[in-house]
Amino acid sequence: MQVPRFVRSFFVTPPSPVAANIDSKSSTRIYEQLDKIILWLKTFQLFFKLQQQLQNLLINIVAAGPVPEHVSFIMDGNRRFAKKMKMPLKRGHEAGGVTLLSLCYILKKMGIRCVSAYAFSIENFNRPPEEVNALTDMFAVKLDEFASRAKDYRDPLYQSRLKIVGDHSLISPEMKEKIKKVEKITNDGNEFTLFICFPYTSRNDIWHATRLSVEECAERNLEPRSLTTEEFSNKMYLHEYSNKCDLLIRTSGHLRLSDYMLWQIHENGGINFSPTLWPDFGFFQLYLMILNWSFFTTIQRYIFHGSKKSESQPKFWDRKNSSKSLLENLPPIPLAVSITGERDTT
């Protein structure tokens, strides 16, 4: 057992006015204190176990209902997190990587088939080179870690497939080699797919699909007019998951897409924005979002299903009459007799 860190830090260094300035909102401060207390409580084995059990139970509960197929993350806020915790930038990115892996565990357990994450934008190459290099190095380490986990049968991530998508002409040959290797190792995983978008922008993705289509038309001598939207979608980086993303989660409070998943989200996808920084984005926030999605999907499916049913199957009280027209359903008429003595032949 340890003394909680905030007690220690209080004795060693009194809170600096600069730090207080950064997040002056009292509510966020209270939340942080709570977080620290929870962290301290986690040092007890029992509490840790209890929390694990509770988490598993909650996951099983939500898995009994409908879950999204494709969940996507924009991992924003790593650098602000590092600044807030006064750590070097690299540590912030590392914390973000850990968050992604732990959320992958949770999502896989819930039965979600595909997760994609925006790791690095093509625009990010404008950042200082040290940071870009640090990010790439860290990324390489994480790749190995993921690959070994996906092959370890005791690990929750066993049997998952890793795909690194994006414009690979922009990265170094060693990196490309490594990516190829890791993708090959995890290629037979069929339960869960993790797409890491590494140098990716959505416009680049659309452009890439256009070029592929044009090239294919020219090479295989296809009729250009017969190209459909579905075929076009399948040529994008995310292949069969390109058509639709059920739930996109963006952290750190910006309300824009930043050139990510434009094609996938713009028709029928749900977008959730969260003000938390990515490394702080935890189980409960994710859980609430999934629960929200699942709740409304249940209702939507019920309404959709209900309306379809009532159309196709007429209710029992009018089933008798449904096939004939009204005229034929009227009661039979008495015999028609004319004054000349003429009768209907029937």
């Binding site: 959505s202 309300l255 897409l257 050139d259 713009h266 749900g270």
Partner: peptide, 19 residues
Amino acid sequence: PSLDLQGFPPWHLRLTEFH
């Protein structure tokens, strides 16, 4: 009531702020 992009041209949504 809840953000629904309804198939707004995807190419043009790149950096657009939503409200």
